[in-house]
């Protein structure tokens, strides 16, 4: 699960600031600076998964009903999914506050 514990001291930071564990971005909330979020209109969605394919952060996963849902801990709000959606089912909505 994601957490925000990327905060380390100079004594414990990795050698040369290397990332020694491949894919460790999954351990951190990488999307908390997002300014807009994708909202899917389930009436229009055909569950084709193009959003899942194009998402550069692998934030999308499929739910039990077969819809693709973006995980807001990783989604950076880039809008690529909305741009690529063949049914225009995804709208980018500004984050409030």
């Amino acid at each position: 699960m994601a957490n925000s514990d990327a905060i380390v001291g100079w004594k414990t930071i990795t050698f040369g600031c290397h990332i020694l564990e491949p894919g460790n971005a999954a351990n951190f909330r990488t999307g908390d600076w997002r300014s807009q979020r994708p909202v899917t209109d389930k009436e229009k969605c055909i569950k084709c998964g193009m959003c899942w394919v194009y998402c550069p952060d692998m934030a999308y996963s499929q739910d039990e009903e077969g819809y693709f849902v973006a995980n807001m801990e990783y989604c950076k709000g880039c809008g690529i999914c909305a741009h690529e959606c063949p049914k225009d089912a995804i709208t980018m909505v500004p984050e409030e506050g």
Binding site: A6, I7, V8, I13, C17, H18, I19, P22
Partner: peptide
């Protein structure tokens, strides 16, 4: 595999 030269956010 390791990553060398990642982004250093202000916290890092």
């Amino acid at each position: 595999p390791i990553t060398m030269g990642p982004v250093g956010i202000p916290e890092v």
